[in-house]
Design a protein around this nucleic acid. Structure first.
Lengths: 145, 145
DNA sequence: TATTGTTATACTCTATAACTATA
DNA sequence: TATAGTTATAGAGTATAACAATA
């Protein structure tokens, strides 16, 4: 067994390198943590409830709770009680939050584009499908224990 | 920008899920940490110096130092001073370490095989190349800052 | 009783750098 | 002076669970 060729190892190494390259944009330049960046990106799609943020970020409720608290302190998002269920909140970007997202997103997308330049159209298409298929199987493995 | 389709996010999510599925084997069942598992797998190729372990695991010198200390406490690896350079050490698996690796490796490889069953031969070939190409580019991005 | 979200706590990881011994 | 590896320390991230408010 060769660690260098072991798929889980290669995925971990690649994801780490890519994450560092992207984190450099939102962390060093804009003082956001990874979880805050994810919440910001999720809410850029439009206002949504905390539960929807959890579902669309793979963060858990504590991570979202803390990221939301910090983003709110910085006036990047706002929060209203959901009148239909007063335990829940609806989250939305403030104009400042939207402005920040609009500054970060192009930089992050430029880095993604740089990565993808390594691949031709056919390779991108296969990779796209492969990532989804592998994730489905990984979730099966996790559930099976 | 859609987070769900953003390559860095998808890689992070996939690598996390896969890592958890593999960690379940060496952690829960055999009480090894990720770094210890990597050092064990590296040394399964044969005895080598600490510096070579660092080069072949993407771990840094502290991570390797601690993993080595713990593996040595559990008598899974042995350590000799390199007589050519008495600052350096040569590390090698003990029989117990080799036996442990031989128990874990097939289980880990079975999980990798299960993941890869999702892909046909052509997809695997493309994925294999794509991961290497993307990693090369990610390292370029990191160095560029 | 169950669920949404918050808070507390302990634990692990990571990053930086100081340090020892050799070179 | 520089390098191999160790140790110290502080900060960040993670996991578990207890908790308050609402359903």
């Amino acid at each position: 067994m060769d660690l260098q060729r072991f798929l889980p190892y290669r995925l971990a190494v690649l994801a780490d390198a890519v994450s560092r390259a992207i984190a450099d944009v939102y962390q060093q330049r804009f003082d956001l943590g990874r979880d805050e960046w994810r919440v910001l990106a999720a809410l850029a799609q439009g206002p949504m409830k905390t539960a929807d943020v959890i579902a669309s970020t793979t963060l858990d409720k504590m991570q979202v709770s803390r990221a939301v608290a910090r983003l709110e302190q910085h006036a990047l998002i706002g929060r209203e009680t959901d009148e239909a269920d007063r335990r829940a909140h609806v989250l939305r970007l403030t104009p400042a939050g939207r402005a920040l997202f609009r500054r970060i997103a192009p930089l992050a997308q430029a880095r993604e584009a740089f990565l993808l330049e390594a691949l031709d159209a056919d390779e991108r298409r296969v990779l796209d499908r492969a990532l989804d298929k592998l994730r489905d199987r990984a979730l099966l493995l996790e559930r099976a224990g």
